[in-house]
């Protein structure tokens, strides 16, 4: 059963793994990291739970942030709603603002995981669309005990 429609992983239920996060995007002070969860969702050993965190270290606010993801047809991806769509400007005397978003990756055929993202946001008045690809996922055999 490839569909992820019925799978929902609450952020609080996620145990972070010891695997290093992967930097998916890092430009002009806007950084997006993929952190990998230790375990798969109950009953879905084929699904990798990823916590996407978006950080702003730029002196400008970043608004209207939307992340989209695409995966090879043999896989499925689902993005749960993000914790926000705006990041306030960086202030050295406060912790950086962050957005977290849970992303689920189903890979039943255990192929090498690849993901393409499309990121749209407004930095100051400047509207941007960025695309990129991420392929440094943990080896699929380790999904579920990271």
């Amino acid at each position: 059963e490839l569909s992820l429609a019925s799978v929902h992983v609450p952020l609080e239920s996620i145990k972070p793994s010891s695997a290093l996060p992967v930097t998916a995007y890092d430009k002009n002070g806007f950084r997006i990291l993929f952190h990998f969860a230790k375990e798969c969702p109950p009953g879905r050993p084929d699904v990798l739970v990823v916590v996407v965190s978006m950080l702003n270290t730029a002196p400008l606010p970043i608004k209207s942030i939307v992340l989209q993801a695409a995966v090879p047809k043999s896989m499925k991806v689902k993005l749960q709603p993000p914790s926000g769509t705006e990041l306030s400007p960086f202030s050295p005397i406060q912790p950086p603002a962050a957005i977290t978003q849970v992303m689920l990756l189903a890979n039943p055929l255990k192929e090498k995981a690849r993901l393409r993202y499309r990121l749209t946001f407004a930095l100051g008045e400047q509207l941007s669309t960025e695309v990129g690809e991420v392929d440094q996922f943990p080896p699929v055999e380790q999904w579920g005990n990271l």
């Binding site: 939307v66 992340l67 695409a70 993000p82």
Partner: peptide, 18 residues
């Protein structure tokens, strides 16, 4: 970038059915 084996872009549903 080979486009053939990738599926379409997915985005978060704004109102999560929950």
């Amino acid at each position: 970038m080979d486009d053939d084996d990738f599926g379409g872009f997915e985005a978060a549903e704004i109102f999560d059915g929950g």
